[in-house]
């Protein structure tokens, strides 16, 4: 009897462990989105200019550059089945359906979509940034996303505009390693169809999968490449960085936040019409 009890006492924690770990284990209706930030096909390593660690890229304009920080917000995620059915994933719930991809924190570079209906999927859609109707810094409604975006080592809130930053890139450029600091976000006011002022920096991204992702039997891993070479040498704009306080200087928030910002937005996230990929593509689908 004693022995039996003893066995039970040992077995109980094991059972509990199993039960807990089961939640984290891959199940067949999960889809893993894995974000890899690159310069062309080279995964980026972050670092100071002086560290010698940072991956250095050269733009079309011949400017060397590297990053110390890469952060961007992904939301409004949808998977499209072969027959065209769109499966939205908590598109109006930033706590469950949005994430801050922070290059420095590997755990944030993977985003798991739970309980996706079984089926064969051909396309992935998501938003770079937050669509305007949700972009209000509502701590009561979305405490988890608020905490993630507002953390001291994240700084993805745009307080003065009471919205979120959509991308925050810090780094250096040119041989003398001038400061590079690019922040994007929306300033749009008013309702859809009747905007009164500001710009919308949210971008809808649509990516065809190179092979169909089959959900149900296995849990596919979709690897999304964010090619930051396109930040300066993009599909839409070829950008030359300059520092200072002149009208065209764009390397630090002073000028990019005025008119230059939208050029970076379009290079990263497309123009919403003819280019719905920007710097993104799906490289692999692992079943």
């Amino acid at each position: 009897m004693k022995n039996y009890k003893m066995k039970f006492l040992i077995a109980l924690p094991l059972l509990l462990l199993l039960a807990c770990s089961k939640k984290d284990a891959i199940v067949a209706n999960d889809v893993r989105l894995h974000f890899v930030n690159t310069f062309k096909n080279t995964p980026i390593v972050l670092g100071d200019a002086s560290s010698g660690l940072a991956t250095i890229n050269t733009s079309k304009e011949g400017q060397q550059h590297g990053f110390t920080e890469i952060k961007y917000v992904v939301s409004n995620i949808r998977l499209v089945k072969i027959d065209g059915t769109e499966i939205p994933y908590y598109i109006n719930d930033l706590d469950k359906g949005a994430a801050v991809i922070n290059h420095a924190k590997p755990e944030t570079n993977e985003f798991v979509l739970y309980d996706i209906p079984s089926g064969t999927y051909k396309q992935l859609k998501f938003g770079l940034g937050v669509k305007s109707e949700l972009n209000t810094i509502d701590q009561v409604r979305f405490p988890k996303f608020y905490a993630a975006a507002g953390a001291n080592d994240t700084e993805m809130m745009w307080e003065w505009g009471t919205g979120y930053r959509f991308a925050k890139l810090e780094g250096f450029y040119d041989v003398d390693h001038k400061k590079l600091s690019i922040h994007t976000g929306s300033t749009i006011e008013g309702e859809e169809g009747a905007y009164t002022q500001g710009v919308d920096a949210y971008r809808d991204i649509e990516l065809d999968l190179p092979v169909a992702a089959v959900v149900g039997n296995a849990a596919p891993i979709i690897t999304i490449k964010a090619d930051f070479d396109k930040l300066l040498s993009g599909n839409i704009h070829t950008i030359k960085l300059s520092s200072g306080t002149g009208m065209d200087d764009n390397a630090t928030p002073n000028r990019h936040t005025s008119v230059q910002m939208m050029r970076f937005v379009e290079n990263m996230g497309g123009n919403g019409t003819t280019d719905k990929m920007g710097m993104f593509s799906v490289t692999t689908v692992e079943q």
Binding site: G161, T187, G198, P253, R255, T257, S258, V259, M261
Partner: peptide, 21 residues
Amino acid sequence: PINPNENETGRARVTKDMKDF
């Protein structure tokens, strides 16, 4: 005289329009 703080662009911060710089 222009605010030396690099975050300052005036109304252009909202409109992203050089006319409001």
